[in-house]
Design a protein around this nucleic acid. Sequence first.
DNA 1: CGACACCTTGAAGAGGTTCAAGAAATGTGG
DNA 2: CCACATTTCTTGAACCTCTTCAAGGTGTCG
Lengths: 267, 267
Amino acid sequence: MPQPIHLHRTEQGNAAAHPAHAGATVIPISAGSIKVACSNCNLRELCMPMGLNKEELDRIDAVVEIRRKVKKGDYLFNNGEKFSSLFAIRTGFFKTCITAEDGRDQVTGFQMAGEVMGLDGIVNDHHTCDAVALEDAEVCVMPFDRIEELSREIGSMQRHVHKIMSREIVRENGVMLLLGSMRAEERLAAFLLNLVQRLHARGFSQSELVLRMTREEIGSYLGLKLETVSRTFSKFAEEKIIEVKQRHVRIISSDALRDLVNRTECD
Amino acid sequence: MPQPIHLHRTEQGNAAAHPAHAGATVIPISAGSIKVACSNCNLRELCMPMGLNKEELDRIDAVVEIRRKVKKGDYLFNNGEKFSSLFAIRTGFFKTCITAEDGRDQVTGFQMAGEVMGLDGIVNDHHTCDAVALEDAEVCVMPFDRIEELSREIGSMQRHVHKIMSREIVRENGVMLLLGSMRAEERLAAFLLNLVQRLHARGFSQSELVLRMTREEIGSYLGLKLETVSRTFSKFAEEKIIEVKQRHVRIISSDALRDLVNRTECD
DNA sequence: CGACACCTTGAAGAGGTTCAAGAAATGTGG
DNA sequence: CCACATTTCTTGAACCTCTTCAAGGTGTCG
């Protein structure tokens, strides 16, 4: 499924040499100069196993075949595409979404630095969702057969891969709870708390965030219409729980948000 | 979390010797007599990798530490419990559900013979959901460290484990689409089609099924109230799409159900 | 048989959607 | 750099789907 080509301003002088092909754009980064080894990456705690010896660390560096830049609006991979690699986000922000036969569309997640995408592709050797960059991004491409090879040889690597997959299953369980049993306000509160918590774990503010996605994308993720998302933002602002100015959100009372999510009344 | 003990008629004379303890009941099956090796199990295609040689098959048999019987209403494992094993269903029917802090409850899946449960426990070494038998059941207990060991040594086993986890991720993606963007009728239609398709793959009828769960459990899974589930069943029956008599459902027109799910109109 | 869990159905009500219009921000091209 | 087009966001009003509350029916199990 082809997608529109978006052209955006680029920070790189040589970008013109890499025409922005839809989705398939692969921009190798000259080895040695820009490349950062996994063993030396500041995201290591997020995407690599801990407690490795020197030799193991060196081998893990070899998991990343290449780095790839993805411009805002471009696809990292899309539904139906042959699966071969997992992708660890170095910088940038993504959404993943699935499309039903009738064209209906569901955002299944938002991913940020240190998180892994592509797990859906393992079972049928083809991706079953689209991964779209919501801002200019850079990912580490990790060929899955290389990951499996290394997993067979290094126990902690194997356990790490299993944990990543299990974590995704648990995350999706949580989204099912949200979609299946929460009302609009609770959903949005849970969403904001989750986002800000993940951002905080990456060194950002505990109370301020910039949404990388539209109201419509938030709505799709939360099973709501964009108007409902907008209205709920306004309601929170009116109640002085948050301040909203377009995509800038400041959380005034995270306690109030938590109360909304864990409302002790019903059920 | 203790749960009520349900006593039901049993097909086995020796059942009285195994009082139905809540959840923790472990009933070893005398090796040799009843035990069926994985390599000889008629569910092999469902839960074991294909294309193994004799020696590998023998080793895989050793993955199953024990078999365990779970009576209807009992817990196979519950939220918070230490994780140590995955469980492959031999017979019976389960639901898995998560409980929010405020007591809200969400059924995250229904599992039948050949399907694997427990993947949620890997990431934090503790289960994050409950697994409840909806009918008397028997599962193969597969210690996860044994699975990992074998995965390191047999490539096809490793790939198989990865596929099982990826399949669960893809399944949950589908549930998110259902919960996030479908209306009641569409949800129930999708649910019935999915159930009957899985049952058919196990040799049951393509058009008739017996629901193992209550309207309330269906509702929880589909993000609907039990009354809505009941009404929707009645509506389908009125439209001669299905026949419903309590938990017995006969699908008269699976095309009509498919049309409901893939309604080509909106979005 | 009697108790209990489960299911069905009706009527009223709430929460979210839909439709519509306009405002604000962003990007585009001259 | 400004004017215009486009996308995104907000808000109101009517509507609809699903929920809630209530009552009665059906089935099951000890």
